[in-house]
Each structure stands twice: as structure tokens, then as C-alpha cells.
């Protein structure tokens, strides 16, 4: 899922301090799961902002509401009757949610309260690790389920490079070399042939904004000429 991290409180303050009434909108989707922008985090952040604004003598009132997901117009309707009472919205959703919120309520400023960081996994409670960059051309089939786009610092398709150091990446002795991991896994599965052939340059699909329509819906959304 998408993983996010709350922005520094000072940055949020600077964005919203000229507004008097702020509605913080949480999201019950991914950011709730990674504990960055769900119901609980809305309450925590509003409490922290109230405290900060009080100490700095900035006049501002905060309210909070969490919708099921901000990446869907239907759920965004749930704040329609509230938005008019506020001067700005502070969205705790991922970048997609913030943009959809801004699109639904174009007359009111919407500010992001979190940084959307990556698509990743839950390592421990509150600890997340990046696994996917949504490149749109998944190569995990021949790389033993290890993503070279995300996990190799150079994004190599024919690694490992010469910088591999005792199985670690040249950028950090803490980071395992993706290509050593790929090699080890494929070797164990007796599939090294998969990486013996030269992989040709990637045909990048993520260089323009993408839209997908799932196969069963193609007909429904076919463009009318």
C-alpha cells in the first residue's frame, strides 16, 4: 500500500497560519493503515497544532473529519456540507487524495499534511519499507520477486554493478544489494538462466500521467466519436 509520513508541524503551520478556520480531513485508506493520516492522526495533529498556535498567539480554530477514502469522489461528498464553514482544508491523505480533494472543492485552498513516500510493506508496527515504484512494467517475474527499479540504487536491469560490497549496496553498508538478493534467490530456485540473458532497455511507461481501464470496463468507457 501507499505509505506516507506526516510533514513537520512547522511546515504545516506556515502553510495554514493565515487562515482562521481549518478543517483537517483524514483518510481511512492507506494512510490510516500506516498511521500517518487516519482518524487517530487527525486528532493528534489537531491537538498539536492547537497547542502550537496557542503558544505562538496565532488565532485559529481546528476541526477534524475522516472520510473513508479521499481517492474516490463519492467518499469526498461526505465533507460537502462542512467545507463551506472553513477557510482551508488540511488533507492527511496521500498525494492522490489531496489532489482529488482539491478537484472536488476547487474554491477552497487544500494543503497537504503528509508527504507521500512510497508503495511498501509493513516491517513492524510503524515501520515501513519501500518495495515498488509503480513503473508500470513489472519485471519481478525474472528477478526472483526482487524489484531492481526500486531496490537497486541505480535501477539496473543487468546487475549487480561493481560497487557491490560484501553483499551490500555501495550507497550504504546497511542496504542489501538488490542484485545479490536476486542472484541468491534465483540460484536457490535453479533459475539463474533468467538473468543470464541481456535485458534490453526499459520501455518506460511512467513518463506521462497514466490512466488504466480494466478490461471488463473497456466497452463501458469506450470513447464516443
Amino acid at each position: 500500500m501507499v505509505k506516507a509520513k506526516r510533514k513537520p508541524l512547522e511546515e504545516i503551520r506556515d502553510a495554514i497560519k493565515s487562515y482562521k478556520r481549518v478543517l483537517t480531513v483524514g483518510c481511512g485508506g492507506c494512510v490510516s493503515v500506516c498511521m500517518a493520516g487516519g482518524l487517530k492522526e487527525v486528532n493528534t495533529m489537531n491537538a498539536e497544532l492547537k497547542q502550537m498556535f496557542k503558544e505562538e498567539n496565532i488565532e485559529c480554530s481546528f476541526d477534524g473529519f475522516t472520510v473513508e477514502r479521499q481517492c474516490n469522489m463519492e467518499f469526498l461528498e461526505d465533507v460537502a456540507d462542512k467545507v463551506g464553514k472553513f477557510d482551508c482544508l488540511l488533507s492527511m491523505a496521500c498525494g492522490a487524495g489531496v489532489q482529488y480533494m482539491s478537484e472536488r472543492y476547487p474554491d477552497i485552498p487544500v494543503f497537504p499534511a503528509v508527504n507521500t513516500v512510497f508503495i511498501g510493506v509493513d516491517k513492524e508496527i510503524g515501520v515501513y519499507e519501500e518495495k515498488c515504484r509503480a513503473c508500470g512494467e513489472c519485471v519481478l517475474g525474472y528477478t526472483g520477486g526482487v524489484c531492481p527499479v526500486t531496490r537497486c540504487a541505480k535501477g539496473l536491469f543487468n546487475g549487480p554493478c561493481g560497487g557491490t560490497n560484501k553483499g551490500k549496496c555501495e550507497v550504504s553498508s546497511e542496504v542489501p544489494c538488490a542484485w545479490v538478493t536476486i542472484y541468491d534467490r534465483l540460484k536457490a530456485q535453479n533459475r539463474l538462466d533468467d538473468i543470464l540473458k541481456i535485458q534490453q532497455p526499459m520501455q518506460w511507461q511512467n513518463q506521462v500521467q497514466r490512466t488504466i481501464i480494466q478490461e471488463p470496463y473497456k466497452e463501458r468507457y469506450a470513447k464516443q466519436d
Binding site: M202, Q203, W204, Q205, Q207, V208
Partner: peptide, 13 residues
């Protein structure tokens, strides 16, 4: 110009 206009349209910009 964006790479998609040229003859290597899937190059990484």
C-alpha cells in the same frame, strides 16, 4: 521537447 515526440518515446526523461 518531451521524449515521446521523438524516436525513443519510452526513454526516461
Amino acid at each position: 521537447d518531451h521524449q515521446q515526440f521523438g524516436d525513443h518515446p519510452n526513454a526516461k526523461g
